[in-house]
Computed example of a mutant assay.
Amino acid sequence: MFVTGELGTYHVKIMGEGKVTILLECGMMHTLHQWQYLQKELSQYAKVIAYDRLGYGKSGKWTSERSAEQQAFECYDLLMTLNISSPLVVVGHSLGAYVTYQLNHLFPNRVQSMILLDPTHPQLEDNEQKLYDKLLYQYALLMKRANQLKITNILPSQLISKMFKQHTEERFEMLRALKSLKHWKTVVSEWKNLYYSNKGIGEALKKQIDIPLLVLTASKQSGLSFGKKNQAELLQRVEDYHQQYARMSLKGSHKTIQGYTHSSIYGNNKDTAKNISQLIRDQIDLFIK
């Protein structure tokens, strides 16, 4: 379905009913399709909302640069348009955790609980992931330029589709994003605004909050680290950053999920979705009776 608020038109998928509403906030470069398995699991006991941020998927274009703060305003715009009245739990993955955290920071008392899945962190971006991020930013610039020149249009769709290991529907979504200039403009803008997003989250992390907050860390961290020792050291630093999120809440907790990657921690198949769904349900049951 599509809903139009004051700041734009959003592509939204709503599943399930229940005494709480769960909003799923995508990571960078993802569409609501990211949540297909987890949304289905959670919809068995709650109303679950997934949506494309402006510039992604089937949502409309954006008019303001893609900082996490601006995207949090747009997220609130969506919530107001949907007229959500039940207790709201927001789940954010990766950069989506920035949008989630800013949503609670800018609109206190609107969010009843937050769950951050392998969230990015200002110090992580400024230190361990700096070179890795630069490479990804250059890739995004390259893809944006390729779409401007319409080079991606001449690439055989069947050949590209076979490069993806995902199921047919997922392949279609990834292929459509690959050939979308709107998509890559959005990715580039998010990267360009990462400095401001980092700064905004850094300021938000100075303020104590009193809502339940669960932070889940993937034990298999990605980045430019090689060897078991380096990977173990990277994980330790990421855990320290993630624990900072948890400490900022009077009801915060942190857990490292063994065997999970940055991609599987949001429930990228039926099994991982079932496991992550149970952790989210356990967290919600702590404050919703």
Rank of each mutant, 00 (worst) to 15 (best):
Y195F: 12
A204S: 12
L194V: 00
V238Y: 08
H242F: 07
M248T: 15
S253G: 10
S264W: 05
K179E: 11
I257V: 14
P156L: 06
L194Y: 00
K251E: 06
Q236V: 01
E170V: 06
G200N: 13
T217C: 10
N153F: 06
S197L: 05
Q221W: 05
K179A: 11
L178Q: 05
K162L: 06
L235S: 09
P212L: 09
Q231E: 13
L235G: 07
V187Y: 04
L234D: 11
L155K: 04
G202F: 03
N198M: 00
S225W: 15
S219N: 11
A232E: 14
L250R: 13
L205E: 03
N230K: 14
R237A: 10
M248Y: 04
K185N: 15
H167D: 15
I211A: 12
N269L: 02
G227V: 09
E173W: 14
I209N: 11
Q166M: 10
S189W: 00
Y195C: 03
H167E: 15
P212H: 10
N193G: 09
G267S: 00
Q244Y: 14
G227P: 10
G223A: 08
V187P: 04
S161W: 00
I265C: 02
Q258Y: 08
W191Q: 01
Q221N: 08
K207A: 12
A177H: 07
A218I: 03
F164H: 10
A218H: 03
S161A: 09
N193F: 01
H242T: 07
P212M: 10
N198P: 00
T261N: 10
E169F: 07
S157C: 01
S222F: 11
S161R: 10
Q208M: 13
S222P: 14
I154N: 06
Q258D: 15
L178T: 02
I154G: 03
P212C: 11
Q243W: 02
S263P: 00
S263C: 01
N269H: 12
L216Y: 00
S253Q: 13
H242P: 09
L214W: 01
S157N: 06
Q221P: 07
L175H: 08
S225R: 14
S189V: 00
A218C: 05
I160L: 15
S180M: 04
P156Y: 06
A177C: 14
K192C: 03
E173N: 12
A232W: 02
Y260E: 15
K255S: 11
L234M: 15
E203C: 03
Q231K: 15
Q258M: 09
P212F: 05
Q258R: 09
S222G: 06
K199A: 11
S157T: 09
W184K: 01
L178R: 06
T256W: 00
S264Q: 02
